[in-house]
């Protein structure tokens, strides 16, 4: 929600990339793309490229961090320095610390942590190219990677954002819409239980706009959920040699 755009972002009901307000960008999800990780997932979401790796359950060191009632879930959302227009300084900043926290809290809802006391489950998410909506793409990739690692889960979490552009509520903001739009609402959702596990919002929404945006995001998340399941099934039905993204 930075500056103002000099040109309209929606013309005759169509967005800059030709999408209708309630349309997602093209999305590709692939499970099991990394060799060394216990589970992994690569997501292409419009121009976003995000990869997630899961290690564990494994022994947690140092020992004083162990919890003898359940596993400790650790999440790290990280952006590559080259993933954005102006080079990002490597390492965690305030934004990525916050995003790692809300993603972890979303995933803790679905992972059976109590099966693995004293151990750690580590989730690493790397944004290789960013084009708005990276936290939803990272959450989506992380939950597929957890399932790919064989970590027992209640369900997958699907991420999807809605927002407001030129006074219109739209699904799945792209970069220009995020920069010059009037609002953003990232959501983490568990479709089988109709549960919201990640919810953030910034911008300017009336009550009705918010309701519409949340309903859009839920509908979007349900579509993402179908793609996540498809990706996991595909891993076990096809015999591919290497991941396409390398």
């Amino acid at each position: 929600m930075g500056g103002k755009s000099s040109t309209p972002l929606i013309v005759k009901g169509k967005r800059l990339d030709g999408r209708k307000p309630e349309e997602l960008r093209p999305i590709k999800i692939e499970a099991g793309v990394l060799n060394r990780a216990d589970g992994s997932c690569y997501v292409e979401w419009g121009k976003n490229k995000v990869i997630a790796a899961v290690y564990g359950p494994r022994e947690l060191h140092p020992k004083h961090l162990q919890d003898n009632t359940q596993a400790v879930l650790r999440c790290r959302y990280n952006m590559a320095p080259f993933s954005v227009d102006d080079r990002k300084r490597p390492g965690p900043d305030r934004r990525s610390v916050e995003i790692s926290k809300v993603i972890r809290e979303a995933l803790e809802r679905v992972v059976f942590l109590n099966y693995f006391p004293t151990s750690a489950i580590d989730v690493f998410m790397e944004v290789l190219q960013a084009d708005a909506g990276t936290r939803c793409a990272a959450l989506t990739a992380a939950s597929v990677a957890l399932a790919d690692a064989g970590v027992p889960m209640r369900d997958l979490v699907a991420g999807c954002a809605a927002g407001k552009v030129d006074g219109t509520v739209v699904l799945d903001l792209m970069q220009e819409e995020d920069n010059y739009g009037e609002g953003d609402l990232p959501l983490g959702y568990i479709p089988s239980k109709d549960e919201i596990v990640l919810l953030q919002m910034d911008g300017d929404f009336t009550k009705d706009e918010f309701k519409t945006a949340l309903n859009y995001a839920i509908k979007g998340a349900k579509k993402i959920y179908a793609l996540q399941k498809e990706a996991l099934k595909r891993k076990y039905t096809t015999n591919k040699e290497t991941a396409k993204w390398i």
């Binding site: 809802r109 109709d194 919810l199 910034d202 911008g203 929404f205 949340l214």
Partner: peptide, 15 residues
């Protein structure tokens, strides 16, 4: 108007 929201902790909300 609404300007910010933040869900926290590991539980969930229904819409």
């Amino acid at each position: 108007h609404l300007h910010a929201m933040q869900k926290g902790e590991t539980g969930a909300f229904k819409p």
